[in-house]
Write a protein that binds this DNA or RNA. Sequence first.
DNA 1: GGCTTATGCGCAG
DNA 2: TGCGCCTAAGCCA
Length: 264
Amino acid sequence: MPEGHTLHRLARDQQRLFGGTIVAASSPQGRFVEGAARLDGQRLVHTEAYGKHLLHHYGDGAILHVHLGLYGKFSTGRGEPPEPRGALRLRLANDEAWTDLRGATACELVTPDQVEILLARLGPDPLRPKTDPAPALERIARSRAPIGVLLMDQSVLAGVGNVYRAEVLFRARLDPLRAGRDVPSRLLNEMWDDLVVLMRAGVSAGRIVTTRPEDRAAGRVLRHQAHYVYRRTGLPCRICSTPIASAELAARNLFWCPSCQAPN
DNA sequence: GGCTTATGCGCAG
DNA sequence: TGCGCCTAAGCCA
């Protein structure tokens, strides 16, 4: 589920498994053969994520950039890697572990200049430590665009996807169509703080859970209890029982409670 | 087993 | 605005 928490978790896990070691790289599918050849036998020094982008820094200066897009996935294991099957874009392995990348939108080698360009078009990332949210909040406060669109704009905020968008708006009881400049700045600050908490929890848990304990049954968080509004069209709101509404906004499915998040 | 759907985003037009 | 990417989980039978 590639929102920002997924990429930060991948960066963390890959750092643990491969950081500081020499890796074998290959592209059985054939779409990244030259890149894999360049990485093969290099030391993977450092991995990091910015928003939904993953970067690997290698000992000879090579930088790998991965963007999962909608379909991309890493599968990872310890010990001997399985026989390559299907469209396996990139396999990395050391003596301890392996990881396979499939279906990614971007899997490419980039220069430091290209990294700089990439980062320049990303807004603040709630998952990067000590990030100043001011540029995002100021931009929202100036914009006539709906807050529901702005939250998903990676140049405003990096790492927020459709699930966090819907859920953080619900938790703020905010109408997704309200213009950014009409959202009180206190509320914007609270939403940023909420994103930091929710997305960090997402990294730890490896999935998105936004419901508060008091708003769901006790015990393990079941899949259908993890969200307030995302993919709950027609189901009763957990707070007020009004059926959850959905609509397309900027080519993405938007979910909200028409009562808790009423326009005003 | 098959069908539907999706967490993203760049590009054509 | 709508398509293409081309994976895999979730759902149904």
